[in-house]
Structure formats: structure tokens, C-alpha cells
Amino acid sequence: MFPTPIQHASKTRQRLYTVALPVVLFLWLLPLLAIFMTSIRPALDINSGNLFGWPSSFDLIDNYVAVFTQSEALRYFWNSVKVTVPTVIISVSLACLAGYGLAIYRFKLALPLFFLFIAGNFVPFQILMVPVRDLSVRTGLYDTVTGLVLFHAAFQTGFCTLFMRNFIRDLPRELIESARIEGVGELRIFWFLVLPLVRPAIAALSVLIFTFIWNDFFWATVLTQGESSKPITAGIRALNGQFVSQWHLVSAASLMAAVPPILIFFAMQKHFIAGLTLGATKG
């Protein structure tokens, strides 16, 4: 193990490490802690300039309730759910199929097609912006949740296919070949043999795509306009304008937006990290 385990170091260094750990973490998360402290302050503190001292009262519940009752935050939140969940389902399902097709069969175009998905996944959003917006306007999907879902699902399919294809290719080939010799149909092989084996990959992709889409801001601003379809990220910006200098409410709203990805991350940490490392490094 590198660096040398601290247990082998001198007592002083061990003690130093135990102290340094929480201190560094505190500094690292200072911005987040500061905004959390702000979100539980009363308006009075903000106006009187008491931003870093002890809050004069703890208004956690009042502030968070205020965010939801005085603004459209609840609706934005629900829109985010309506965009994120179907996107995850569609893109992961499509990628399971495509990943299987590209990993198992040896055909000439397998590699070029695979590279097409990878390349598409890395392009800057701006090169897609005008045509996608135009397409959405012409098909009546502009400013709708469906329009956002369709685009996100299509775009994320690239990354998901990359991931799935690599995962499936590492499965033992003999398994599939022997099933074929037994005369099992291709679809049945996929459904009964491969799908159960790729469950970890499905989990990893789901949590990752959930976080990506939940946090998306660019497409939310490009493809939506009104309140009816605006997700929480774009909503926060609107709230920021509405709650001018009411920092306690802006902070509360921002933290609320961060809660679902944080929960997902904590619940499925192992899968999340496996997904981020593209499954390239296992462990």
C-alpha cells in the first residue's frame, strides 16, 4: 500500500494525521457548511450582517417551508423527477441492447459503431444546441418534459452504450456460445443469460445518469422556458432572482436541489464510483 500505512509511522505522526483529517475535511467542505448555516438563519441575521457568527435563532424548518410555499420550488422539483427517472430507464435500456449487440457479435461495423457512440458522447453541447432546439420547436416538444427526456435519453445512450459494451465484452464468451449451440434464441440469450449478469452495470449506470440529468442546467435552459417544465437547476436560478438578497432562502433552495443526488450517492456509493471510473479500474 502506498503511502506507507500510518500505523507504521511514529506516534506523533499518527496523532498528527488523526488531527489533520477532520481539519482538512472541514476546510474542504467549508463552502457547503457555510451555505448550510446560512440556510438555517433567520432573515434578521442576514440583514444585520451576522453571517458567520452563531445564528440568533434556528429557523431550519421555517426557511425550508418558506421556500416551498413562497415559490414554485416544489413544481421545479417534481419536474426534475419527471425528467430524470424516464431518462434513466430509456437510456439504460437502449444501452443494454446496443451494448450487447456490439459486444457479442463479430461484425465489421461493430467497432466503428462503438466509436461513433463514444465520439458523440464527448462532443460539446453547443454543437447540438441549435438543431435540437429547432427540432423540438418544430415537433412541439419545446418547453415540455417529454422534449427534455427524449434529448437526454438519446445523448446519454452514448455513454451508457460505451459502458455496457465494455462490461458485456468482459463476460465469459463460452457461456453465450454454448447457449447458442444448444439452440437458444438470441433474444432469450440476451434476456435470460446476459441481463442477470449485467445487473451491477445497470445499477452503476442508473445512479450515474440520475446524477448527471438531475444536475443538468444547460439543456434545461435551452429547451424549457416556462414554469410548467423547468427542472430544479434552472429553477434555482429563477429563485435567485426572486429572493434577491434573501440568502437564507436561496441557500435552502440550493441545498434542497442537492439532496437527491447526495442521497443516491450515499445509498449506492460502490456502484456510483464503478460508473465514474468507466469500469476501467475495478475495485
Binding site: A98, F117, G120, L128
Partner: peptide, 21 residues
């Protein structure tokens, strides 16, 4: 078979990503 497996993803991806480029 591989084309049937890849087709839905490819179609979707082409309309929203490849063609717009």
C-alpha cells in the same frame, strides 16, 4: 441480430446527436 439490438439506440442517437453536428 446485432443490427436489431443496436438499431433503437443508433436511431435515437443519430437523430439527436450525430445529425445535429
Amino acid at each position: 441480430a446485432p443490427w436489431l439490438f443496436v438499431a433503437p439506440a443508433l436511431l435515437f442517437f443519430s437523430v439527436y446527436v450525430i445529425m445535429p453536428i
